[in-house]
Amino acid sequence: MKTKHRSLALAIFAASVLAAASAEADSPSPAGIARNLAHGFASGDYLRALGASALRIAAGFTLAALLGGALGILQAAFTPVRRLCGPLTTGVQALPAVCWLPVALLWFGRGESAVLFCVVVGSLFAVALGVRDGLAQVPPLLRRVGQTFGLSRWSQITRITIPAALPAILAGLKQGWSFGWRALMAGELIYATAGLGRSLTAGREAGDANQVFAVMLLILFLGVAVDRLGFGLIEKRVLAKRGLASA
């Protein structure tokens, strides 16, 4: 799983930087980071930051899932739409969400909407791809099973197409979430009144390396938690049911 490797690499990187830096006097130390975390949670600052970021990602990701889902369905259902939007979706999906930041600032100015825009465009194309490919790649044999049992169009969709496409749809949602989360952090670095990205900037502005690393740990923790415990567990269950090994 790509995200797993990435977060693992990030953790190792963070740990080695910490170990190297701890040797020097004014640098972050495990003890300093722990103190900063304790203080941050006690004062409620970090909870507020976590809450603000969680709220933004929830709103942004919900919007992206709805829009991306609709885009994916349209592409799967209508060949002309697929011809038109297909290559575009694939291409834009490969574009790092940070690249949308200048556009967002141009269109929306420095504000909540710009950050939200980044999250939505960052994640919606990954969702659209998952939904499109999942729906389009339902095995023809299973479609025929539905036909020979005389399913209505609606039942064909709910009883064959969607369950058959579910693993791919979930994979798309998971990737979309992880792209959206990165986009949010980038966006919050540039502009936000509260949030983890904002706390990161605050740490830098204050010259407090302990805070910077503490917040990085929080971001890492939340990212891994949602990826593993949220999407990971659902995906595992869905794949195990079908006799497919989880990747």
Binding site: L141, R144, V145, F149, P163, A164, K241
Partner: peptide, 27 residues
Amino acid sequence: AGPDRLVIFQEPALLPWLTVAENIGFG
């Protein structure tokens, strides 16, 4: 196609997300 002429395929074509009992009760 329709259930008056039910097709049994070369592959069993069971639905992998359902149990055996749910598959048998599909129609």
